[in-house]
Simulated scan of single mutants.
Amino acid sequence: MSKLRVNGFSLSIDGFGAGPDQDLKNPLGVGGEALHKWMVGTRTFRDVFGEDGGTTDTDDAFAARSFENIGAWILGRNMFGPIRGPWKDESWKGWWGDNPPYHVPVFVLTHHKRVPIDMEGGTTFYFVTDGIHAALEQATAAADGKDVRLGGGVATVRQYLQERLVDEIHMAISPVLLGSGEHLFTGIDMPKLGYQCSEQVATPLATHVVIKRE
């Protein structure tokens, strides 16, 4: 049965999944890039972008797990690009260039219609205007029995958690304090929603925590 998974979601020690003042120059907010230090040096991450080398340690094992059995993705609009409001300029096709790292159908949550975009490597972006449940239904159908990965950002993950739709979430808690930005769990009672920690592993660059829904 297909699951909805959050994988490789980096958090600061004080619970922020992105820093403040996100823009084109700082897509993860000020200080946000430091959250992902655990991932960028891994063999898995480098392989996604066609580069050789990289570590093969515990961080890499969690990064590799995040791509296993994924048949579709769901993204919030901010994860697709910095543009707000109607799509006045449709030349923007995502942060990742002509060959994004997804290689499966990707469903982007938005309030504004846009025709699908076919990219290199098997990625097609579909734009869903009728909410998180519709996006999950479409992504699950496209995944054809495989899992759906919820890529974020923070606000999107929060919406799915509040609806108890996420089956599993892997967080990498980085040794970074951001002080402000987008907080993941504010106002969300995870135990009340049926979520419990099932795994935790510490490395020099992150503490990996897996939370599953009962």
Rank of each mutant, 00 (worst) to 15 (best):
G194F: 03
W92F: 15
L136H: 05
H111M: 13
A134T: 15
D21H: 14
R158H: 05
K88W: 02
M39H: 04
V48G: 10
H170P: 01
T123L: 09
L161P: 00
L177W: 04
Q196R: 14
D52G: 07
Y195R: 05
R114L: 13
P116L: 01
G17H: 03
T140N: 02
I169D: 01
E182D: 12
D144G: 12
G97Y: 03
G121L: 09
L193N: 04
E199C: 08
G94N: 01
T129E: 09
E51S: 08
D98P: 01
L28W: 07
L24C: 01
L178I: 05
L177T: 08
G153P: 13
A142T: 12
S91Y: 11
T156V: 15
G76A: 10
A72K: 12
H183A: 09
K37Y: 11
D23S: 14
L150W: 06
P100Q: 05
F62P: 12
H36S: 07
A61K: 11
K37H: 11
I211T: 11
R164W: 04
S198K: 15
G153Y: 04
A155N: 12
A61P: 05
P100A: 08
Q196S: 13
L193P: 03
G85H: 13
T124A: 11
Y160N: 08
R164A: 15
F107Y: 14
G81I: 06
W96L: 07
G32W: 08
S2N: 06
R164K: 14
T55G: 02
R164S: 14
R114W: 13
S12V: 07
K3E: 15
Q159R: 14
V115H: 08
G179S: 11
D21F: 14
G97E: 02
T156I: 09
W38N: 05
D57W: 08
V201M: 09
G145R: 13
Q159I: 02
E214L: 01
K88A: 07
G54F: 00
Y195D: 04
R43K: 15
G187F: 05
I70E: 02
M79D: 07
G17Y: 06
Q159A: 15
A143N: 00
G15Q: 04
G131L: 07
W87I: 08
S66N: 10
T42W: 08
D59K: 12
Q159C: 08
W38M: 04
R213M: 12
P20N: 11
A172Y: 00
I74H: 11
L109N: 10
I74Y: 11
L75R: 02
E51K: 07
R65E: 14
R213E: 04
T44M: 13
L35N: 03
